[in-house]
């Protein structure tokens, strides 16, 4: 479990987060949603410890991340995996070297054991046999999946995903969502996804918080989205007239 406890963040006079309180539950796919500029990325960076809040605390179970030294934060991070918006795959390393990197750094395993684990992770994301290729030699969707494989190679307790569907076609985006969701269930991870993809919300949103102008304006799950009367959520999820019509019809048909 990760808990954001009254998080404030300002850049000069610009208040980006204004007192966010939210619990990201273990074993669930937790979503941070909101329009561009709502403060999602800043909140994610604060949760993962890449940025310090102006005020407030981030709790990893019983540990306050904000009170830890850099070295102590690094210890916590051994239990964290992250998928970046731009994948952040090391472009001068092969796919295998990318996935193996955390093991090379922190595990005392034989090279055979590491290769076995890499093969397992690649198989898990349906990318068998691309070990020797470089990130530039595979598609954007494949890069995302390699990013996921690298993120869970050390069996992390917490998984962070920053806009995992950005730049992907809808079908590939759904594949990525399903993959993240199934890995979360499989390893009972606390997964936090930062997204503005409506499909992700409706497919995998088990615990959702909606940010608007730095405020938490709605929380719930995908089942509550359809019935919401929250104007902010309505305007975010059902932004197009087509979707608004579809929703009305769905509600009429019960």
């Amino acid at each position: 479990m990760i808990r954001a406890d009254n998080i404030f963040k300002s850049f000069g006079d610009n208040d980006v987060l204004k007192g966010i309180d939210f619990t990201f539950e273990a074993g669930k796919t937790n979503l941070i949603i909101g329009k561009s500029g709502a403060g999602k990325t800043v909140l994610l960076k604060i949760l993962v410890g890449l940025m310090k809040p102006s005020d407030g605390h981030v709790w990893y179970d019983d540990v306050d991340l904000c009170s830890l030294s850099k070295d102590q934060i690094r210890e916590i991070r051994m239990q964290v995996g992250m998928l970046f918006q731009g994948n952040a795959l090391f472009d001068s390393m092969t796919i295998e070297e990318n996935i193996r990197f955390p093991m090379d750094m922190f595990k005392t395993m034989t090279i055979k054991e590491k290769r076995k684990r890499v093969d397992f992770c690649l198989e898990r994301v349906s990318l068998e046999g691309i070990n020797g290729r470089y990130p530039s030699e595979i598609s954007g969707g494949m890069q995302k999946r390699v990013g996921i494989a690298r993120a869970f190679v050390l069996n992390p307790k917490y998984l962070f995903c920053d806009e995992p569907n950005s730049g992907l076609d809808p079908k590939t985006a759904i594949t990525i969502d399903e993959l993240i969701s199934s890995i979360t269930d499989e390893y009972n991870m606390t997964t936090i996804i930062n997204t503005h993809d409506m499909n992700s919300v409706m497919e995998i949103g088990e615990n959702i918080c909606l940010l608007s102008n730095g405020n938490l304006v709605w929380q719930g799950n995908k089942d509550l989205v359809m019935e919401t009367d929250n104007k902010e959520l309505e305007s975010f999820i059902f932004a197009s007239p087509f979707l608004q019509k579809l929703r009305k019809r769905a509600l009429l048909n019960g």
Binding site: R74, R77, V80, F160
Partner: peptide, 14 residues
């Protein structure tokens, strides 16, 4: 700029 440093930091690398 390509977030490689952030990615390493998240892994726990100094």
């Amino acid at each position: 700029q390509k977030e490689h440093i952030d990615a390493m930091e998240i892994m726990g690398v100094n």
